[in-house]
Amino acid sequence: MQLSGDVIVGVDGSDQSAEAAAWALKELRGTGRALRLIHVITPAHLEIDDEAELTEAGRTVLTGLADRLGDLDAVHPDGASGTEILTEVIVGDAGEELAMRAEDAGLLVLGRHGAGTVNSRRIGTVSFGLPGHALSAVLVHTVRDGSEFDDPSGHPSIARGGARGGVVVGLDTSEYAGVAALDAASLAVASGWPLRVLVGVDALGDRAEAESRAQSDLAWLRESFPELDADIEFPPGDPAEMLIDASKTADVVVVGKRGRGVFAAMTSQLGRTSSAVLTDAEASVLLVPYRRDPRLSARSA
């Protein structure tokens, strides 16, 4: 996917955040971008005398993780090692601090839930609330059966655990969806994995017109990515439900942060579909914000 800046990972000491950091490291190989590991201490959880101790404990967590990631990077068989890994401990609100630092980031990566929630499918409060406020793209990483640390030959873009089902993207007529489709195609091509493009025609009105437009969009993606292995599906029903169902066999589900109802939904940071997918998907979810991209003009044409 397109990275306009460094990749930030929120680290809280949990296995989920460590696996998210390993995923991010694989995504960064060969890009020249740095990996920034950030640990946030929340003021409400500490006494004044505890701050120095907790800050030191946070540094220990980050140093240990950085060492593990450095070992993982060094043994990668393609030799594309040497990713710069930076660490930072901050006192403040986790959501606010990470959102502020994500303004100039290429990607913000979070574990699905934090250290206080073990083996739960429920998404954590920060991982649910932050994607709508961050200006960057946000990847909420879900750990399934495997570990990112197990197989250093794993491709940079795809999680090692899970169903190995490739990349799924939801597509409608909005420019948010167009940008999401470009990033999903980029992920798929980089990994050598197929891309499934899902179009909820029931929500788009005229079915024949919606299918024709979707086929044009698929041709547009193939023109932008000649090596793309992609197909398109038109499942019936609610768009959120079809993406959640697809997540059962996918590695990454990609959605725009908002869809066709962008102006009606300006009071909320995420659209209804992206919010539902983030909450209930069984795969990692990449939420893509709008950005200007010259390739969108070809889609409109």
Score class of each variant (00 low, 15 high):
residue 1 M to P: 03
residue 1 M to Q: 00
residue 5 G to Q: 05
residue 6 D to V: 05
residue 9 V to R: 04
residue 13 G to P: 09
residue 15 D to C: 01
residue 22 A to E: 02
residue 22 A to T: 02
residue 26 K to T: 07
residue 28 L to A: 04
residue 31 T to A: 12
residue 32 G to S: 11
residue 33 R to H: 15
residue 34 A to L: 08
residue 34 A to P: 05
residue 35 L to A: 13
residue 35 L to T: 11
residue 37 L to F: 09
residue 41 I to D: 10
residue 41 I to T: 09
residue 42 T to W: 11
residue 46 L to G: 13
residue 47 E to M: 15
residue 47 E to R: 15
residue 57 A to K: 12
residue 58 G to C: 08
residue 59 R to A: 09
residue 60 T to Y: 07
residue 66 A to C: 05
residue 70 G to V: 07
residue 73 D to K: 12
residue 75 V to K: 11
residue 82 G to C: 08
residue 82 G to I: 02
residue 84 E to R: 15
residue 86 L to D: 04
residue 86 L to V: 12
residue 88 E to R: 13
residue 104 D to T: 08
residue 106 G to W: 01
residue 115 A to D: 04
residue 115 A to Q: 12
residue 122 R to I: 11
residue 133 H to M: 12
residue 134 A to C: 11
residue 135 L to V: 12
residue 136 S to T: 10
residue 139 L to M: 15
residue 143 V to D: 01
residue 144 R to P: 00
residue 148 E to D: 10
residue 149 F to N: 05
residue 150 D to N: 12
residue 151 D to F: 14
residue 156 P to R: 02
residue 157 S to G: 15
residue 171 L to E: 03
residue 172 D to R: 14
residue 178 G to D: 09
residue 185 A to P: 01
residue 186 S to E: 12
residue 201 V to Q: 03
residue 203 A to Q: 11
residue 203 A to N: 08
residue 205 G to K: 07
residue 206 D to W: 00
residue 208 A to N: 13
residue 214 A to Q: 04
residue 215 Q to T: 11
residue 220 W to Y: 13
residue 220 W to T: 09
residue 222 R to A: 10
residue 230 A to R: 03
residue 232 I to V: 15
residue 233 E to K: 10
residue 234 F to P: 02
residue 238 D to C: 03
residue 240 A to E: 15
residue 243 L to F: 00
residue 247 S to V: 02
residue 254 V to E: 00
residue 257 K to N: 14
residue 261 G to S: 13
residue 264 A to L: 07
residue 269 Q to I: 04
residue 278 L to I: 04
residue 279 T to A: 14
residue 281 A to P: 06
residue 282 E to M: 11
residue 282 E to R: 10
residue 285 V to K: 01
residue 288 V to T: 06
residue 289 P to L: 02
residue 293 D to A: 10
residue 296 L to K: 12
residue 297 S to P: 08
residue 298 A to E: 13
